[in-house]
Simulated scan of single mutants.
Amino acid sequence: MPAAFVLLLHRRFRDVEDRREVTRFVLGYNAAAPPTQRVPPRQAEAVLRANLGEAHLAELVDDVATARIMYALLFALVDDLALSEDEIDDLITAADDLLHSVMKSSQPDLAVPTIDLATVIPHDSMQWRPTRLGQGAEVNTGSGSM
C-alpha cells in the first residue's frame, strides 16, 4: 500500500509548488468524509508532505497513524486523479515493481518494520469511499445482515 500511495501522491502533487494545496486536499477529504472516516488534518498534512520530500515531518506521526492516513487518502487520491480501472491496474503493477526493486536493492539482513493492517485499519473503513464531485459513497461489502 505505501508504494501505491507514494506513486499516486507524486502524480497528484508533482507540479504543485504551494504547500497549501496539500492542506486543501486534506480539508476536502475531511469535508466529504463521515466523522468516523476523517483523518487528523495536521498529521495527514505531515504524512503527505513527508512523502513529497519534507522527510523531517515523518517524525511527527507514529507508524500506526501514518498507516491509517495512507489507507484513507489512497482512495481519495485515486478519486481525485479520476483514474480508470486500467490506470488502477497499471498503478498496482507499478507499485509492485517498485516494491520488488526496493527489496532487491536492500540489505538482506536489514530489518524492515511492518504493520499488520488488519490491526490498524478500522473494520468498518471499507464502508465509505470518496467519490468524484466531493461526496462520499457507501460501499456494499456484502457482509451486512438481512
Rank of each mutant, 00 (worst) to 15 (best):
Y71I: 00
E87F: 10
V139I: 13
A94W: 05
V120A: 13
Q43S: 12
S84F: 10
P113A: 02
V6E: 08
Q127W: 06
E85Q: 14
F13D: 05
F75C: 01
H10R: 15
V78E: 15
V64F: 09
L117D: 04
S125H: 08
A118M: 03
E85H: 12
I121R: 01
D79K: 14
A58N: 05
A94Q: 14
P108H: 08
V26K: 02
G28M: 05
N51Q: 13
R132N: 13
D62W: 09
D63A: 12
R38H: 02
N140M: 07
V22W: 03
S84G: 09
T119V: 04
L99K: 08
D116Y: 02
A4F: 03
V64T: 12
L73M: 05
S145F: 11
V139A: 00
R132S: 15
G144M: 00
V22I: 12
R11P: 02
V64L: 12
V6C: 04
M146R: 13
R38E: 07
V78H: 14
D90A: 14
S84Q: 08
T36H: 13
D63M: 08
R14C: 14
R42Q: 11
F75A: 12
D15L: 08
V112Q: 07
E54Q: 15
I121S: 02
L57N: 07
T93S: 09
E45P: 03
P108R: 13
Q37T: 03
A72F: 04
P130Q: 08
P41H: 10
A76V: 01
L110S: 11
L52A: 04
A72Q: 09
P35F: 01
D80Q: 14
A46V: 02
L9K: 01
V112S: 01
V47C: 03
S105A: 15
V39A: 00
A111R: 09
N140P: 04
D124R: 06
Q135L: 13
F5E: 01
L133N: 15
V16F: 05
D124I: 00
I121C: 01
R24D: 03
F13E: 05
P130A: 09
G28L: 04
D96C: 06
L133I: 11
D18S: 05
L99Y: 13
T141N: 11
A137G: 14
G53R: 08
E59H: 07
H56K: 14
V64H: 09
A72N: 03
S105G: 05
F75V: 05
R19V: 07
H56V: 10
M103C: 06
R38S: 03
R19K: 11
N140I: 07
M70A: 03
M146A: 12
S145H: 10
L98M: 11
Y71C: 05
D63Q: 10
S106F: 08
L8E: 04
Q135W: 07
P122S: 02
A82T: 14
T36F: 11
P2C: 06
I115V: 15
P41G: 04
A44S: 00
S101H: 10
T131D: 11
L7S: 06
P122Q: 00
S125D: 07
T114P: 00
V26A: 02
V6N: 01
P40S: 05
M146K: 10
S106Q: 10
F5T: 00
A94N: 13
A76I: 01
N51S: 13
E45Q: 15
L48W: 01
G134W: 01
I88Y: 14
A76F: 06
H10K: 15
P34G: 03
A50V: 06
L73P: 08
R49Q: 15
D80F: 11
